[in-house]
Amino acid sequence: MVNIIELAHVVDILDSFVPKNVVESALRTAGLDRKMLSEGTGFVSYAAEAVILESVARMIGDRHLGARVGRAFDYLAYGAYANYVLGAPDLRSALDRGRRALSLTHPGSEIVIRQTDTHVVVGRDSKGFSVVGHRHLDEGALFVISKVARHFLGTDWQPDWFELPDGNGDDKSKLADLFGAPVRTGAQSPSVALRLSDLDTRNPHPLQSRKTITLKDLGALMGVEPVQSIEGAVLQIMRAHLPTSVLSESKVAAHLAIGPRSLQRALRAEGTAYRTIRSMLIEEQAREMLQKSDIPVERIADMLGYKEPKSFRRAFREWTGSSPKSFRGNRNANT
């Protein structure tokens, strides 16, 4: 999973690289639109971001689009998360903060650290998650990790080497030119090599804030909760698409890069099912739309996947004990 904050910034970067209609086409391929990114909070799937980058890369013939996007990525776009990480007293603490808080930007991923006699190799592991376009995310991650190091070590700092899971000789040569450092392939995860002697470098530019941000504060500041379960992942993905559409079980599974049966088994193991989650979300969205908008009931029914308004009215009465019209009337009376 990836935080919508990051994906929205990636789309802004793509808009600066290519015509907007190219980006629009890529968003549609991933089952997303700009409204979801501008108004939504929470997460979308890792696969969706990969599909967007791969679609644009194919349309413009850029095999290393992810690296170019990563180079242009503004780490401060993460907002409170960036303030938390870059506000650390030294580089070692910043890496630890990033590792502990990663669930707020990339649920399901983790920061992995490998130490040698002279270096610490820092990478982002997505637990073997492989989807079309994952190469772009791997290459972009190297720049994001490097930007944390450069905050402490200076803008001219370069790692002694980078690591990537795959890539041929031609790729390594081109990426070395893009990255400004040697590239090694065959690694478990995209990683950056930092010298052990650099880890205790003090923060030369601590970010100023009215109070110290704690890990406990971060979720509320970013408007998200870490995804801890498959049910949570399904909820986040479906909420990102509401109220534009209600995703089918197969589309939710596709966003998670798994098959529908695998999704069913995973939800069953957690004591729930797609149908239960879908019903809960539709009720939640119906209440909100009736309370906060003047959209006609028939239109709300259609937006929430009901072919017949009377089916929606019947379901709403079962949820609340009143009709949509009465529910909205009570809101107006209270106002």
Results as ranks from 00 to 15, higher is better:
A8R: 15
Q188H: 01
A269K: 13
G305W: 02
V148T: 15
T118W: 07
L194D: 05
A82L: 05
V246Q: 03
G271K: 07
G271H: 08
V192D: 06
L53E: 10
H119A: 03
L199E: 03
W319K: 04
G232H: 00
S146W: 09
G154S: 13
V23G: 14
R268D: 14
L263M: 08
L53K: 11
H106Q: 09
A333F: 15
N21F: 15
S323Y: 03
G66D: 13
I230Q: 06
A240E: 01
P206C: 12
D125Q: 02
L235Q: 06
W157C: 12
G219A: 03
G271Y: 09
P165E: 01
M303L: 14
M1L: 03
K20T: 12
L175E: 12
G223E: 03
P226T: 00
T244A: 12
A30R: 06
A77R: 13
G61T: 04
I282S: 00
D294S: 08
S262G: 14
L207H: 06
E24Q: 11
K172L: 10
Q291W: 09
S93T: 14
G232E: 00
Q264I: 11
G167I: 05
K251R: 12
L14P: 13
D170T: 11
P309D: 07
K292L: 02
E288Y: 12
I111C: 08
N203E: 13
R202E: 14
